[in-house]
Design a protein around this nucleic acid. Sequence first.
DNA 1: CTAGGGTTAG
Length: 480
Amino acid sequence: MEYILHIVFLIAGLVASYWGVKQIMSFRLSTRLLNICIASFCKTKQLERAEVVIIDGIRLGVLPDVVTYNTLIDAYCRIISIDAAYSILHRMREAGISPDVITYNCLLAGASRKCLLPQSLDLFEEMLQVGIPPDVWSYNTLMHCFFKSGKPDEAYRVFRDIILSNLSPCPATFNIMINGLCKNGYTDNALGLFRNLQRHEFVPQLVTYNILIDGLCKAGRLGAARRILKELGDSGHQPNAITYTTVMKCCFKSRQFEQGLEILSEMKNKGYTFDGFAYCTVISALVKNGKIKEANDCMEQMVKNGIELDLVSYNTLINLYCKGGKLEEAFKLVDEIEKGGLDCDKYTHTIIIDGLCKAGNIEGAQRHLSYINTLGYDSNLVACNCVIDGLCKAGYVDNAMKMFERMEIRDSFTYTSVVHNLCKAGRFRCASKLLLSCIKGGMKILNSTQHAVLDGLRYSGFTSEARKLRTKIRLARLFH
DNA sequence: CTAGGGTTAG
């Protein structure tokens, strides 16, 4: 397709350069074609090709316009970096083309996608300064960025600004709002806003339904999610692949593995195309349920269908290799990530650390943990939990305890791991102390672990301690 | 041009 467009563009460009009389007409026509061609290359991440077309165009007298540069800026934000996009902005100004509101919106979206709140605010400020008034999409994007940065109050303030100003909100404004509320734990408010909007003749889009279904599923409110799914069916919209992936993921999460697989086959039967999201959902669920063979088959399918691997897909596959005991294969993929110009993230490292632990290489895991601590990730709680559990399972309960004490943040996983393994080592009184501080901290602990402590105390003769612990647990629960 | 689904530990 791109090649055809390229050729069409060249012909149009040639026509334009030779058709002197109707130069203006032709110029417009060929610039439009140029832009279509550029957009096409950008969409397929072929930025070098897009640049070549621009050079070709200039040679033929077809000059890029503001749309050309906006398309490029958006693509550079997505594919390379915001800084790279800024250099396009610079080039644009040098070419004598002034940025417009869309130029800024592209940059804003780029910052928002990477959760760069300060940069978003700066851009917003800059828009006002250079006299390009933000439009409703600028506000939408800023609101989105606040939500993504975990600042729902600020996001809500932007929402109010939109409603109270002359800008009219668009459907996306409400979708971003509903999604942001869900993602920040305000599922009820999201549902309330949804109902309120419906009373005001807002017609929910498919996206709106998908957002709500996902939000309700993640909040564990399966009944409400089912109702919205039913409403989606009654609305005249057809569920799409995203709806299916969302519901499937929800089944896996709520431990309805078989039902999830049923949705998978329904998706296949109805001819929905599988993308990376769908494959990753299924592969992770299979791995979690110990079905390595099936997960491998699924991966094969994924590769055969030519799915381009992004970081999340790589992480999913690395996890599959680790859990399947193929560490070398996992490390090969890590190399592939880095060679492809991507950066490993905290998921990649955590998966590797857990893989090393599970393979019995605790020293390697600890080394990798100290290595990532130098990389400046804000939280390595999951990775720490992996190492703690690994130490325990390898018989180094004391080392695990030392690490446990050093940790500033602990969660339910940390406690469960340590308490469970203290029980296995017969150290029930120590386990009992930690169990209690876990519950007092308002954290859950696996029922089986709690029982291990109580039973352990009883069997080793500490019957009254066991009874006291039960009372204390009940008391502590009352306050949470 | 901008909004929705996928990855880690007990």
